[in-house]
Design a binder for these strands. Structure first.
Length: 293
DNA sequence: CCGCGGGCCTGAGAGC
DNA sequence: TGCTCTCAGGCCCGCG
């Protein structure tokens, strides 16, 4: 489910509930999510104050006073909500279709403020792991992640360089977290559409023979920036699972131009194309064959 | 190094 | 109603 804009939305929602508050009690209600919980998972959280909540790619990272960092990944269907100490969410807000029964509430952090932070994940592709801050660079989950797409170092020159020797398609290259970290199926489709580039185009063609960026590379980076920024502003995209931590929907799904719009008319001015869908690397690709070249 | 298929899970929606 | 089938914002592994 969640790509960078959804994870960033969750981070912003959790930040006021976590930062500066102590984890009084932590519950892991099953022995595993995607992976088994560490044996000392709960022990390393309880009594710790969260000093900051950051994000790297699709990971949330909570800094703890002990020097540990809590890594959290939402997988496909993970969501967080913040409950007040009366057991209710913020009035009138939380109505999650899959979690009203609370059957998939797998992790709960009881904070010193009285708030409970609840992680719900029906499919359990999400995971959490506590690691020492000074061992971050040795963490396999984070090793090899490429640049943040909204960070300073990600630009056309860098994208061109990392694609120069690739034999893959643009679609596969952008989904590869080693090339750029945080994009997923939706935003790759949308960025390629906005850049008028075919998902089948060879990634290496973003670079000249001297590994300089082409205009296509520049246009693509601009499209990635704008689609991510707009999506963050909209609170992410809610298809079935993603909620803001208040329970409210994100609304960027209304701004999709190709994703899940198979058969609809292309929205590009002057283009008479129809949005098509095909499978690439096992994932659905949505695109307009007429204006994406 | 690459693409592909399968796997991990639950649930929604379509079609019959 | 209810069954079966396909598909889903991620990611990993092994195969050829």
């Amino acid at each position: 489910m969640p790509e960078l804009p959804e994870v960033e939305t969750v981070r912003r929602g959790l930040q006021p509930a976590m930062e500066g508050a102590k984890i009084v009690k932590a519950e892991a209600r099953r022995k595993d999510l995607r992976f088994p919980f560490q044996k000392d998972f709960v022990a390393r959280l309880e009594g710790q104050t969260v000093t900051g909540l950051g994000r790297r790619a699709k990971y949330l990272m909570a800094d703890l006073t002990s020097g540990d960092v809590l890594l959290m990944h939402l997988g496909m269907s993970g969501s967080f909500r913040v409950q007040n100490d009366d057991g209710n969410t913020t009035p009138g807000q939380f109505h999650h279709p899959r979690s009203e029964t609370r059957t998939h509430d797998h992790v709960v952090f009881h904070m010193s403020s009285g708030a409970a932070i609840v992680f719900n994940d029906p499919r359990r592709f999400g995971y959490m792991k506590v690691i020492a801050r000074n061992a971050l660079e040795d963490e396999p989950l984070l090793n090899g992640l490429g640049p943040e797409p909204l960070g300073n170092e990600f630009d056309a020159a860098m994208l061109a360089r990392s694609c120069a020797n690739k034999k893959t398609s643009l679609k596969a290259a952008l989904l590869d977290q080693r090339v750029v970290a945080g994009l997923g199926n939706i935003y790759v489709c949308e960025a390629l559409y906005r850049a008028h580039l075919s998902p089948r185009r060879l990634a290496a063609k973003l670079a000249t023979k001297k590994a300089e960026p082409t205009d296509h590379a520049r246009h693509l980076v601009n499209s990635i920036h704008s689609v991510l920024n707009q999506a963050i502003k909209a609170g992410g995209s809610s298809i079935s699972d993603h909620r803001q931590t208040s329970g409210e929907l994100g609304y960027f799904q209304h701004s999709f131009q190709v994703y899940d719009r198979e058969g609809e008319k292309c929205q590009t001015a002057g283009c008479s194309g129809i949005v098509r869908r095909f499978t690439q690397n096992g994932r659905s690709t949505f695109w307009c064959p007429k204006c994406q070249k």
